[in-house]
Design a protein around this nucleic acid. Structure first.
Lengths: 150, 150
DNA sequence: AAAGTTTTAATCGTGAACGATACAAATATA
DNA sequence: TATATTTGTATCGTTCACGATTAAAACTTT
């Protein structure tokens, strides 16, 4: 297709970012009903994934892991604090840092969340999305992230 | 990896949606400096792509092509109208519909935009992102969209 | 120790996304 | 032809994203 004579790079169907952007949103929409049960959003779910692997982690490190700026994370973390999922405490050794840690509610949510990935896979199955293709795509995306990250 | 004994589906690195979501945002960030020259955002660029293929198109049809709800498009289209890129007119045959059409500025922007895809490809080259892999990914994503769309 | 620089969060403003709701125009049904 | 339903758009409220800026703490370098 790239070799066709009157190839138009501005045609919607020739965009690479558009399907990426759309599928990302479509997938997040698939997560929504599952996350609603925990009363969290998809970005908040990502924060929980990080915290379940590292209880006690500075905002900066969450920012690096999720590729989100602190001006996105600060209000998001405050909402999660209000909802009782986590605590925000200034580090005593370096007062520039705010250390995020899970509350009991945040830790307990891990058990409930364990079924989310499987339920999502089932949803994608319904859409006849090929699991192998998803693996291929994931490996490509991970490579892109690794190179962009430098 | 999926076969390992203590495979943890809640590990960040085992998520499929997260890299999709991140790369989508990273790519849109790559577009930003190019789109800044036209004083438009990435979703606004998508609207222009649609309009360059169909001058005179109802909001509903843009919504279907971009997979965006009208409550997202209405304010976005109003901003583009304010910026002089397009016009919004009620259809005379069916007054429920608002027909979007390009202004001269909107049509003229097409010429400037022609160089955007090439410039983006160059950027991705710098990140040593493989073009073939991008094609593979695009075909998978297009399939996902087609199936989700039903 | 004083001055400059870097690091880490927070604040502010703008622009998406999207669920819920409203409303008028068009269409279908009784 | 009334009444009900559907369709297309708009409005409202909440939550991201993110650039620009601010501020304080921690470091470097005179």
């Amino acid at each position: 297709m790239l070799l066709e004579e009157n190839y138009n790079p501005l045609k919607l169907e020739n965009q690479i970012c558009f399907p990426l952007y759309s599928v990302s949103r479509l997938l997040i929409q698939q997560y929504k009903p599952l996350l609603d049960e925990l009363n969290i959003t998809y970005p908040q779910y990502l924060v929980l994934l990080v915290l379940w692997e590292n209880n006690e982690i500075p905002v900066k490190d969450i920012s690096e892991k999720l590729l989100l700026e602190t001006n996105t994370l600060t209000p998001l973390l405050k909402r999660m604090e209000t909802n009782g999922y986590l605590q925000r405490n200034r580090s005593k050794t370096d007062e520039r840092m705010v250390i995020i840690s899970l509350t009991k509610k945040g830790k307990d949510a891990h058990q409930k969340a364990l079924e989310i990935p499987q339920k999502l896979v089932e949803k994608l199955d319904c859409f006849s999305v090929d699991k192998k293709e998803m693996e291929v795509m994931k490996s490509i995306l991970d490579k892109v992230i690794a190179t962009v990250k430098n």
